[in-house]
Amino acid sequence: MADGNRFFPALRLILAALVAGVLAGAVAVYVRESSSGNKAPAQVAAGGGKDDVACAAKTDRAKKIGAAATGQVAALLPADPPQSLKSLTFNGPDGKPTTIADHAGKTVLLNLWATWCAPCRAEMPALDALQKEMGSDAFQVVAVNVDAGDDAKPKKFLEDTGVKSLGYYRDATMALFNDVKTRGLALGLPVTMLIDGQGCLIAHMNGPAEWSGPDAKRLVEAALQPG
């Protein structure tokens, strides 16, 4: 059964995505790259900083955690090699800029989503449930909305769908998405990254998953294991 689920979310998630897409009037999942971004391609290509070197040494750990991604989260791929995402920037619940570095010491499941993206809308309740059950001083789901415009539409969506456990993180500039895309991690939305307490990318995936299920919980438990 795990093999059958390896690249596709549960049927319930697909149906929910289709319904959400109709309600949202969504006509496309993928977003277009703009000229803005947290880093220019040349900077990313240059890389090689001490943080990236330290993260690259975690290749074996990334493979080990990637092996724990089975069933409904099996599309999550180990970082090859792991890289530092400390500089990723977005606005926190207080509306002020924050970075992955500000979450030091905590494993983060970073998810980029938009209200016009049907699969994003479908998986938000599951991400909320994962945060409610497993959120702690050691683990947090950070779901960053990337809608253009003001906060009205994304906040209304979260309210209407009963999302209460997730903090409200936001980037209306597309800089965050473009940074992740430049790094070769994003094809479109949603995109999800598993980041360790040192800000190192351990695993990533494009597309939705059933984040409230037992497979996701086992993945988080594996990511929280020392070593």
Rank of each mutant, 00 (worst) to 15 (best):
T107V: 04
K106L: 12
G95S: 12
A126K: 04
V108Q: 06
A114G: 14
M124E: 04
T107M: 07
W113S: 05
R121T: 12
L110Y: 07
P97A: 02
T107P: 02
R121M: 08
L110A: 06
P125R: 08
P93Q: 13
M124G: 03
P97N: 14
V108C: 00
R121L: 04
L112D: 00
L112M: 13
D94G: 08
P119Q: 13
A114L: 12
C117E: 05
T99C: 07
K96A: 13
P93H: 02
P119D: 09
G92M: 03
A114T: 08
N111T: 10
P93F: 14
A114Y: 04
R121C: 11
W113Q: 09
A101N: 04
A126G: 00
A114W: 06
D102W: 15
C117V: 11
A118D: 08
K96P: 03
K106Q: 12
G92C: 10
T99F: 15
H103E: 14
I100L: 11
P97F: 06
L110F: 09
T98Y: 03
L110Q: 12
E123R: 09
K106R: 15
H103I: 00
T107H: 03
L110N: 04
P125L: 05
M124S: 08
V108G: 01
K106A: 06
T115V: 14
A114K: 07
P97I: 00
R121K: 07
H103W: 14
T98P: 02
E123T: 11
W116H: 15
A126L: 02
C117R: 08
T115E: 07
R121A: 15
D94H: 05
A126C: 01
A104V: 10
C117D: 02
P125Q: 11
A114C: 00
K96C: 03
P93A: 04
A122P: 08
T98F: 05
R121D: 13
T99N: 13
W116T: 10
A126Y: 07
E123A: 02
K106N: 11
N111K: 07
A122I: 02
A118P: 15
A104C: 11
P93K: 15
E123F: 02
A126W: 03
A118R: 07
R121W: 01
T98L: 01
L112W: 04
A104T: 14
A122F: 06
P119F: 01
